[in-house]
């Protein structure tokens, strides 16, 4: 699904490469943790998959497409097949929960009736049923991240990228978010998640790719986070928030989950237990093209 072949990325001439000869292959439907210190190249990895950046050397394949040769006007099509979640949620503050999720469908020109049915479905699915009219500032962090995940997932992408999705959340809420990502993964969506959260990685026991100064130093199936002291030497065993570009991550202040987070988690679990289906996969030009490209690559292999 995602393949890096000897990928290097140098942002500024003469600077240390952000990624240095990275080769990795993420299969369809896999769940991969990307771990490593701040500045180890995790975010660059995700940006290359989204083609927000182009590699300096090597090739990046996503869903069978060679991104180094992808023409600019095909980039939107690529991104419709990829969902992205951030540490800071990136919700639109002046839009309601419903509008935030609907926005993602509106701007890719989905018909109104499709939006009206899909958005409530996905909101129920992530456990935010009944909170459609709230605005982001009225929600807890965990709920906001659920909105962001709903927005990333509402178009049923083949790939979900998450950059420190639990970085601003307390441990209990983080677990709820992880269960949500796990459920998304179980619908067949490939999930790549960059994280510092060793508890989560250790609990999930999924594939772990560790980056250090732009190189892959470990790639293990069903692995643990590894030794914190080695990965994050500045902070050692303390739980931290990632601080991209600011060097040393900030210590995470341990807090109890907010009531909203607990409620959302319970609602999501209930929805799952009731057998609420995820929003249907919309077959459109891009995804057809994408699956076509995947099929042809599979044949090649």
């Amino acid at each position: 699904m995602i393949r890096f072949e000897n990928v290097s990325k140098v942002y500024a001439r003469g600077a240390r490469p952000a990624l240095d000869d990275v080769s990795v292959d993420v299969e369809r439907g896999e769940f991969v943790f990307l771990v490593g210190a701040s500045g180890s190249g995790k975010s660059t990895f995700l940006r290359l998959v989204l083609r927000e950046e182009r590699p300096t050397g090597g090739r990046v394949y996503v869903a069978g497409r060679d991104l180094t040769r992808l023409s600019p006007w095909r980039v939107p099509g690529l991104r419709r097949g990829i969902g992205m979640v951030f540490q800071d949620f990136r919700l639109l503050p002046n839009k309601t929960v419903y509008e935030n999720v609907a926005f993602a469908l509106q701007v890719i020109g989905r018909p109104r009736h499709h939006i009206r049915t899909t958005v409530p479905e996905v909101l129920e699915w992530v456990g935010l049923d009944g909170k459609e009219k709230r605005r982001p500032h009225e929600l807890s962090g965990g709920e906001q991240q659920r909105v962001a995940i709903a927005r990333a997932f509402v178009n049923r992408p083949k790939i979900l990228l998450a950059d420190e999705p639990t970085g601003n959340l307390d441990p209990t809420t983080s677990q709820g978010i992880m269960r949500l990502l796990d459920r998304i993964n179980r619908t067949g969506t490939t999930v790549v998640m960059a994280t510092h959260d060793d508890e989560i990685v250790n609990e999930m026991r999924r594939r772990v790719v560790e980056l250090s100064t732009g190189r892959i130093v470990r790639d293990e199936v069903e692995a643990a986070y590894g030794r914190r002291e080695e990965i994050l030497p500045q902070v050692g065993p303390v739980a931290v928030l990632d601080a991209p570009g600011r060097g040393v991550p900030a210590r995470r202040i341990s807090v109890r989950p907010e009531p909203g987070d607990v409620a959302a988690e319970r609602a999501a679990e209930q929805a799952a237990a009731r057998g609420v289906d995820p929003p249907p996969v919309e077959v459109d030009e891009d995804s057809r093209e994408m699956s076509g490209a995947m099929a042809s690559r599979a044949e090649e292999a």
Binding site: V75, P76, L78, R80, R90, F103, I108, R151, D286
Partner: peptide, 17 residues
């Protein structure tokens, strides 16, 4: 920028943005 960033992220076409 926030809106256009999200639009680009979810795959809105350049013209649409």
């Amino acid at each position: 920028q926030r809106e256009t960033g999200i639009m680009r992220l979810v795959g809105a076409s350049t013209l649409f943005v």
